[in-house]
Nucleic acid binder design. Structure first.
Length: 118
DNA sequence: CTTCTGACGAAAT
DNA sequence: CATTTCGCCAGAA
């Protein structure tokens, strides 16, 4: 594992891998990081400040909805090509990120075993 | 040093 | 479908 780094730092590393036009979920990030619960991912995002280069807007909840209702998160995603339905939800089948590739995981010290059950 | 408080998820009830 | 329970980080007061 990427030792010497805090849980939050590992969470940010993973989120930075999400490409524009795709979204990921709190649960998926927690599985990739391995040592973080979905709740901790939420804590980590709440601690993000400007200048950290973390595309926090690409992280939505398991229902495909943005966490910050009434904020600018949805507008930022629409600008990247993400579509929302009438209920304000994103179709994860179409816009969901499939995850980092094995090479990246291994190069950064993450456990690749989560791939076996994805 | 202690307490409080958040961008969440899955399973059980 | 709504509510409850647990998991257990990091910064502010």
């Amino acid at each position: 594992m990427a030792t010497g780094q805090s849980v939050n730092e590992r969470i940010y590393m993973v989120i930075r891998q999400v490409p524009e036009g795709k979204v990921t979920t709190y649960g998926q990030i927690s599985k990739i990081v391995g040592t973080a619960s979905a709740r901790q991912v939420g804590y980590a995002l709440a601690a993000v400040r400007e200048g950290m280069a973390v595309p926090w807007q690409r992280v939505v909840n398991s229902q495909g909805k943005v966490s910050l209702s009434g904020s600018e998160q949805q507008r930022l995603l629409e600008a990247e090509g993400i579509e929302f339905d009438a209920q304000g939800r994103i179709d994860l089948k179409r816009f969901g990120w499939s995850g980092p590739d094995d090479a990246w995981l291994e190069a950064n010290g993450f456990d690749v075993t989560w791939f076996w059950s994805r």
